[in-house]
Amino acid sequence: MRFHSKFLVASLGLALLVAGCERDLTPDGPSLSDLYGTFKVKTALAASLAQVDFSSGQSVYFTAETSISTDFILEIKGRTSGAVKRITGKSRTLDATNALWQGETSQFPTFQTEICDVQLTFPGYADTLTAVVTVTGKRVVEATILDDFEGGFNPSWTKFIQTGANMQFSVQSAPPLAEGTSYYRMGGTVAWDWLIGMYEMPKANMNGGAGFQLSNDAEKVFFNGVFRQMAGLDNAIILLQLREDDNGDGTYSEGSEDLWAVEIRPESAWELMSFKYSDLVTLVNGAASAAIGNGLHEPEKLHRLSILFLANPSSGYAQCDADMLAFTENAPLAL
């Protein structure tokens, strides 16, 4: 009898426990009505601001609504610069969460202060919605800028240029542009060596001798640059090297302190490339190998940054353009 009671109490307890549990019965996933309904534009495209000043921290977002959730392409194009910002997604509504523009660029050059045409299209449907927004202030780049070449070539660089044929190392401003109105061109033919030219930014030349002032967390530090090479060529190589003063003696000791590197082979169109400091490796003849120094990625100990312009000596003329060389923290550079 005693066990009968226990059994009964246990059963009742279990039943009460289960009865007390409530489930969230909100349907899982996107609404089927959104996915399979008839497509109609319910609200036209509109910008949250008619004029936006990115330099003062403003941003603009776009709104529109359709009857079903569908893929969209929002394209903002500068009338003067030709810069393009493209936002894609899948949604029934466009709002600040999925159609926010903070002045950055998807396709170089960067935006100027100009009128921009905005176009919203939906793949698979004929409807095209348009709007206009005016940029009154350019986006401010939050980065430790090594050089953007807008004021000419930064004299803080030390350079070495080989003797060769058709050597071109100069600031250019002919379109197509990347960031701003100027960029740097490196070109030439050196038949006896891979190295065509080299630029170095020593720690002593940065911030009045205070150094690069980078975070000590290599996961948070990014090196960024915008690169391209001459159309029709594929022989240009940019070798980025970062030397660390592991022992803190103020100099870099060849062969005993870390040298991190990455090899860049640009395409013919401008491309913003970002490299996380912790992802850099030690390269020997282009192949990853064991670290030379203490093996720790220590951005705060960066002694100097080198940019080597290389090409196979037998490949002939090589040419590469660079712009906006900068370090950022926490995220890659957005232009």
Binding site: L25, T26, P27
Partner: peptide, 8 residues
């Protein structure tokens, strides 16, 4: 089903 998938 106990909870609908994309619908109630």
């Amino acid at each position: 089903e106990i909870r609908g998938q994309g619908t109630t």
